[in-house]
């Protein structure tokens, strides 16, 4: 986003576009990347409810892949994932590997 000059700013520095932080990429912060293993997923959606960055996509009650634009790689999802028969459905892998 191009920053506005002071003459173009809204009165009171109001931000009229709700939720425009979605345009900001925090995915570059990641040192570890969560990887979703669908075969071990029981669709409990704990990853979704516990994600601090709203980065687990869910459509029609079923989870999809991660939103890597915003995921900071904290690993809460992988830690909370119950998996299937002891096999996690989310594993953390080092970025760049």
């Amino acid at each position: 986003m191009k920053l506005k000059g002071w003459k173009e700013l809204e009165m009171g520095a109001v931000i009229p576009e709700a939720g425009n932080a979605a345009q900001y990429n925090t995915g570059s912060w990641r040192a570890f990347r969560p990887q979703w293993k669908e075969e071990n997923c029981i669709q409990c959606l704990f990853c979704w409810i516990y994600c601090p960055d709203s980065s687990v996509t869910v459509s029609d009650g079923k989870r999809g892949d991660f939103d890597y634009e915003h995921c900071k790689g904290c690993g809460v999802c992988a830690h909370e994932c119950p998996g299937k028969k002891g096999n996690k459905a989310i594993v953390m892998v080092e970025e760049g590997n």
Partner: peptide, 24 residues
């Protein structure tokens, strides 16, 4: 969770709280 996940998230990603913060 299945039903709740159909609602719109009112706090988007892209905020700059630390990775793994409990607040969001």
């Amino acid at each position: 969770l299945k039903e709740l996940s159909k609602k719109a998230d009112l706090l988007t990603g892209g905020h700059r709280l630390c990775a793994g913060c409990g607040a969001p």
